[in-house]
């Protein structure tokens, strides 16, 4: 049986982000893309599940950047059996979650999995999370913010994190959708040489699709947060800064 993992490339927020002249998108030329960190966890959780059940993991992504192959080959190198990239006339487009879900549903239906795993959230969407959106469109039960899972007797038992260490364990009938916050263990590492080998030996399947209309909120503009911060920036070399900090803490009776 099949477990689908949905993967997305997102702008690396560690880098400087630039707003495009249109004011409603990032300057995509200035962006470097990384795989959404929660997708690494979703993939890891899928691989762990599959190791226990003998399921086949299929990695699926929508290629909005023209650079998705690397991520999919990495997934194959880590143990996914197949990788599928959804392509179409949306390269460079900023897809809403709703549009992404609509594009993914036919591919998921074709694969007929018993479980779909996505990352819990991505930093680039205005309209919420994909896992519950897919759940609604597919009519399958779901849980997000999942930190461990187990397949047993026609159900998936998923542990969802609330807050302050409180968790909710749900038993969902299969097929189901999970939004993964963290895998049971840190995502596995795969050497680049192994990825290169996979690039020579395996291939990525493609599914060409038509773009969909969608109901994205009407974005007026993007902007940087106002510099409302009262933060006083301390400058100088490390020892001058250390002196200032100690002075500050002493003055407040904190040392």
């Amino acid at each position: 049986m099949t477990i689908v993992v949905v993967m997305e490339q997102v702008p690396d927020v560690v880098e400087e982000l630039v707003i495009a002249p249109s004011g409603t998108d990032l300057d995509r030329d200035a962006v470097s893309y990384v795989i959404n960190e929660y997708d690494d966890h979703a993939l890891e959780e899928a691989l762990l599940l599959a190791e226990a059940t003998g399921d086949e993991v299929v990695a699926v992504g929508i290629d909005t950047t023209g650079e998705l192959d690397q991520a999919l080959y990495t997934a194959l190198a880590k143990g996914a059996r197949r990788a599928i990239k959804v392509t179409g006339d949306f390269e460079g487009a900023w897809l809403s979650t709703r549009a992404a879900a609509q594009l993914l549903v036919p591919v998921i239906k074709e694969l007929d999995p018993r479980l779909v795993l996505t990352g819990v959230q991505a930093p680039d969407d205005l309209d919420g999370q994909l896992a519950p959106t897919l759940s609604a469109l597919l009519g399958w039960p779901h849980a997000s913010v999942v930190i461990s899972s187990e397949i047993a007797d026609g159900v998936v038992r998923a542990r969802k994190e609330l807050w302050a260490g409180i968790t909710m364990t749900l038993e969902l009938e299969l097929p189901a959708v999970l939004g993964v916050q963290a895998a049971r263990q840190a995502p596995r590492y795969v050497p680049i040489s192994r990825v290169r080998q996979v690039m020579r030996e395996a291939s990525i399947e493609t599914r060409e699709v038509e773009p969909v209309g969608d109901l994205a909120p009407s974005l007026m503009r993007l902007r940087f947060p106002a510099e409302t911060s009262q933060a006083e920036m301390l400058t100088g070399n490390a020892s001058e800064i250390a002196d200032r900090l100690i002075e500050l803490l002493r003055a407040r009776g904190l040392l």
């Binding site: 309209d127 759940s135 997000s144 913010v145 969802k160 609330l162 807050w163 909120p217």
Partner: peptide
């Protein structure tokens, strides 16, 4: 937009076909 709410908001919006503004 909490762990409980995140699971509900997107589902409801997609089912009713209403727009959702998250975060």
């Amino acid at each position: 937009n909490t762990s409980l709410g995140m699971d509900v908001a997107a589902w409801v919006a997609a089912t009713l076909d209403w727009p959702l503004i998250a975060y």
